[in-house]
Amino acid sequence: MRRGKKQLNNKNVRHLITKLNPRSPISEQFKTIRTNLQFSSVDTELKSMLVTSSGPSEGKSSTTANLAIVFAQQGKKVLLVDADMRKPTLHYTFRADNRRGLSSVLVAETSLKDAVTSSDVGGLDLLTCGPIPPNPSELLGSKAMETMIANAQLEYDIVLFDTPPVLAVTDAQILANMCDGAIMVVRSKQTEYDAAQKAKELLEVGNAKLLGVVLNDREQKKGHYYYYGT
């Protein structure tokens, strides 16, 4: 049991590199991604974004968490939402209470204000998944979700959603239609081209504004930084 806890802690250290080592080359690349996102929205303000991937284990959750941190480090008021209501991880990563969260808000068991918790990163608040519901897709596509996003955008500069992989379930497609933009994560030497292309097409069917793709775990070459890696 102790060994398992130590492994989880080490994993979290790797996930939150922008918090633990904000001057590292990897953290700098997250800041570059942040800047590129801001340049992509010169004409329209990005208030809500989702992060997804084509399949599992491509790094979308750690990417979402680190992006939220670098936006908060810039002075933005940020809400990080765990919208992966099938395999939530946000409460593990930040060691947050998950007895209530997004699902609790969507079924009107609690208000958004009461479900949100603060993190130990200044400017960053968290909305965990909450109890896993039997109908995630229906909840994410509900009027209650639209209302939650609208209310969150009144309180925060950036609302960032971690969503399930596109090819696994329809959740990301559904949410993409409600957000200002979408980011897709692919993993070097793992994500197949056809899978990434299919995920892109499905997001476009969902009327997503695809802001860009984050390449995860690119091999570092001598004299060069990672584009992004964990």
Results as ranks from 00 to 15, higher is better:
Y156T: 07
I183Q: 05
Q74M: 07
Y193F: 12
A115S: 03
T230L: 11
I149M: 10
V186Q: 03
I174S: 01
A96Y: 04
D180F: 15
A168F: 06
R95N: 13
T230E: 12
Y228Q: 05
I183L: 15
S62K: 00
L175T: 13
M148Q: 11
N12P: 00
Y92P: 02
K143D: 13
Q190V: 15
G4N: 12
D84W: 05
V81L: 09
L202C: 02
F94S: 09
A199N: 04
K76E: 04
K198E: 13
D171L: 07
T163L: 13
T64D: 00
K143T: 12
Y225H: 08
A208D: 05
A208I: 13
K31T: 02
D157E: 12
S188E: 10
Y225G: 05
Q7T: 15
S41R: 04
T128E: 02
L202E: 06
Q197E: 15
Q220R: 14
K11L: 14
G123M: 09
G229F: 08
R86H: 13
V13W: 09
L202K: 07
L37N: 03
L106Q: 01
Q153P: 03
V166Q: 06
G123L: 14
V70Q: 04
L210Q: 11
G4K: 12
H15M: 14
K222V: 11
T18V: 14
T230D: 13
K77W: 08
A72G: 07
A83K: 06
L20A: 15
Y92G: 09
T128P: 07
P56A: 07
V159C: 02
A115V: 03
T191Y: 03
Q74V: 01
P136S: 09
V213R: 09
T35L: 09
V78T: 11
L80A: 07
L126E: 08
E155G: 05
M145K: 06
G55Y: 11
R218D: 08
R3L: 14
D43G: 14
I132F: 12
L211A: 13
G75F: 05
F71A: 06
L90H: 06
K31Y: 01
Q7S: 13
A182G: 04
Q190F: 14
R14K: 15
S27D: 01
A68D: 02
S48K: 06
T128W: 07
T64S: 10
L80N: 02
T44G: 06
G181A: 12
G122K: 11
G181P: 09
N135E: 07
L175H: 10
D125Q: 04
G212H: 11
L112K: 07
T163C: 10
D82P: 02
P134Q: 04
Q74I: 00
P88M: 06
Q73G: 00
Y156G: 03
I132W: 08
G229L: 06
Q220K: 15
T64G: 00
L175Q: 11
L167K: 06
V159G: 00
L102E: 05
G4L: 13
E201K: 12
L50D: 02
L203W: 03
G122M: 08
M1V: 14
N98M: 08
